[in-house]
Design a protein around this nucleic acid. Structure first.
Ligand SMILES: [Zn+2]
Ligand SMILES: [Zn+2]
Ligand SMILES: [Zn+2]
Ligand SMILES: [Zn+2]
Lengths: 163, 163
DNA sequence: ACTCCATATGTTATGGTATAACAACAGTTG
DNA sequence: CAACTGTTGTTATACCATAACATATGGAGT
């Protein structure tokens, strides 16, 4: 498990494992992981970063898998709605989930230096937000939690002396 | 203080008071609250809800205060960057801050029934997110915290018997 | 095999959000 | 006045997302 994602890791392996897990999950749940959907998930896993729908579309187009925006958006909708990917609102972009299968509210750490994105867990119904919601009688169904800042690598680079 | 915002309140008063406070703050800090900026803040306060940049622009246009998108976006940038307004990423929309002056990370409760938005406080550096960030060596500079769900009014309406 | 139906894909067109780039202008400062 | 800074105005364009409709595919029931 690599819940944070700013470290290096065996990327080839993680792409392959995640794809296999998605296939197994879809088979178990009678979900149709079509070539386009599978390929989009693979692109997100390979990219290992937040990608815009049009970035995805460029790849699909180049591979003859679809040339128009709805093709990309529909595949992304499928992946997001079944928990294989998340949308990062702040970036208008999508990223593969780092721990699908488990029901979770993702929280993202977005580096403004290198654009890396790490996925962590949030607990929207607890903490101050949960308390405020409870007091107001508001029922939380979904939450967007996205932190912007500097990842350890970029912080190190920043601290390096200039002269 | 009405930190939650799903209740009714003296709206005329809150618009006026907030505008006066903004003027005072700008005077103190040598910020230039120009007519366009002031009017955009007023529109957000009057609307008392999340408004898209183009909604704002429509008003400005009708009033001869600017006809092109950059006029609205620049005023909104000013307001957001000085804490008079916030952007709601999930809605691609803007809303007046309900407690400016205080340095805070806003958290929003967004009702999917009536589109009302209430502003609460978040503490991004605490809780699970803060712990995850600290462990990863990630420095949080800013956070987006937005909960979607049902406000008390809409929940009540939903529970009402149909026959 | 044939029909019906549900699901997925493909395409056109459009709508909604946001910014780059440059021109014009006003206030301030030396 | 000249130089500078900050604000506004405009054109044009880029980027993000969906509506609507046509087409194809595959399974269920007959
Ligand atoms: Zn996830
Ligand atoms: Zn970084
Ligand atoms: Zn606020
Ligand atoms: Zn509501």
């Amino acid at each position: 498990m690599d819940p944070l994602g700013f470290e290096h890791h065996d990327h080839r392996h993680c792409v392959h494992a995640a794809l296999a897990a998605a296939e197994a999950h879809c088979a178990r749940h009678r979900l149709n992981l079509t070539p386009v959907r599978r390929r989009v998930l693979e692109l997100l896993l390979e990219g290992h970063r937040a990608m815009g729908a049009y970035d995805i579309l460029d790849h699909l187009r180049a591979e003859g898998l679809g040339a128009q925006p709805p093709v990309a958006y529909r595949a992304l909708d499928f992946l997001v709605s079944h928990g294989f990917a998340h949308k990062i609102e702040r970036l208008n972009a999508f990223i593969a989930c780092t721990h699908p299968e488990t029901d979770h509210t993702p929280a993202f750490l977005i580096c403004r230096g290198c654009n890396a994105v790490a996925e962590a867990h949030a607990e929207p119904t607890r903490g101050m937000l949960g308390r405020a919601a409870a007091e107001a009688g508001f029922e939380i169904e979904q939450a967007v939690v996205e932190a912007l800042g500097r990842c350890p690598n970029c912080r190190k680079a920043e601290e390096a002396p200039c002269a």
